[in-house]
């Protein structure tokens, strides 16, 4: 148990230490305002990262999500502009589209026996292209419903705003945690990540599970797209380029093994918040270039990859004497 949860503890420790450092330098950072903003600014990333966590736990990868978020924003903006549909209806349509899209990718991965990397790479281009098909401009969203959502928040003590999209992100993480750790579907996801052949022998319906995993990721990408459109108030086909990679980084920093089979959804939340914290620090500092965010994320990623390799080495070393006894 200890070895499995260690990366999670390390993630949490790094986050707390980082926060402490920020606080020592800028006491204002320990306020509900900063925390509220942290949640709001990273809501779309957190939601899509939950889907990515499930995918990575199963040993897969989903490169399409960044494009799907952009497509979602454009899809919503164009439909709201050109039709009289209510946003709720548009949301439902969109989620159906992105979920089906994910399910199709899962189906291809399973039926053709293709690596997820290639299939979702194709999905990435497809979704980005589809977004351009709808429009090449940034389309503003003007709807009373949007105004209502954007201005609805819970005022925390200390004047921090807990926005609807922030809450939605926390709910997504909670749902992801239940799904991954407390359902049979989640057990199948971990089983696939541990080894497909063995999983099959243990009775996992590999095809069905694969389709569901990517459908879930597609759903979360759609949800993230909705949140992003609320956050920015527009749809733009060039938005969120590379977000899939940021999401993967958050998952790995959150302590999930990139090769699958081990990790925690909660860790992903901490990973997302850690990345957000770095960004906030840079804003507070004012003199640092925003590229420092990337550098710190790069360093964190490296630290975690080395840590995981080390852990793997340690577990194997512990088992080796038993194997050698044969």
């Amino acid at each position: 148990m200890i070895s499995r949860a260690l990366p999670l503890y390390v993630t949490i420790a790094i986050f707390l230490v980082a926060y402490a450092i920020c606080y020592a330098q800028f006491p204002a950072m320990l306020s509900t305002r900063v925390i509220g903003n942290l949640l709001t600014d990273n809501a779309y990333l957190g939601i899509v990262a939950v889907g990515m966590t499930i995918v990575i736990l199963s040993g897969g990868i989903d490169l399409s999500v960044g494009s799907v978020i952009a497509f979602s924003g454009v899809f919503i903006a164009v439909l709201l502009r050109d039709t009289g549909l209510h946003p709720i209806v548009v949301f439902a349509l969109l989620l159906a589209v992105t979920t089906t899209f994910g399910a199709l990718m899962g189906g291809f991965i399973h039926l053709l026996g293709m690596p997820p990397f290639i299939v979702t790479l194709a999905g990435m281009f497809l979704a980005r292209g589809a977004a351009y098909m709808l429009t090449i401009d940034s389309v503003p969203i003007r709807h009373a419903f949007y105004d209502a959502i954007q201005s609805s928040y819970y005022l925390m003590p200390g004047k921090g705003r807990l926005t609807l999209i922030g809450v939605l992100m926390l709910l997504s993480v909670a749902a992801g945690m239940l799904l991954a750790h407390r359902t049979r579907f989640g057990a199948s996801v971990f089983a696939l990540g541990g080894g497909e052949a063995t999983a099959r022998l243990m009775g996992v319906e590999v095809g069905r599970t694969t389709v569901l995993i990517y459908a879930f990721s597609g759903f979360m990408a759609g949800l993230s797209g909705i949140v992003f459109s609320i956050y920015t108030g527009s749809g733009y086909p060039l938005a969120t380029v590379g977000t899939e990679l940021t999401a993967i980084a958050a998952v790995v920093i959150g302590g999930t093994l990139l090769t699958g089979g081990s990790g925690y959804v909660f860790g992903t939340l901490v990973g997302v918040l850690t990345m957000g914290l770095v960004q906030t620090y840079i804003v507070f500092d004012g003199s640092l270039s925003s590229w420092w965010t990337k550098i710190v994320i790069g360093i964190l990623l490296l630290v975690f990859i080395v840590l995981q390799k080390l852990l793997l080495r340690l577990t194997q070393a512990r088992l080796a004497p038993l194997g050698a006894a044969a």
Partner: peptide, 26 residues
């Protein structure tokens, strides 16, 4: 042919986990 990344209990119960309110009862 079991999964080393799951717990002993998960391996034994895999596919027939006891559930409460739809969630696996650890």
């Amino acid at each position: 042919n079991l999964l080393p990344n799951l717990t002993v209990a998960q391996n034994l119960a895999f596919g027939r986990e006891p559930r409460r309110f739809g969630l696996v009862d650890g």
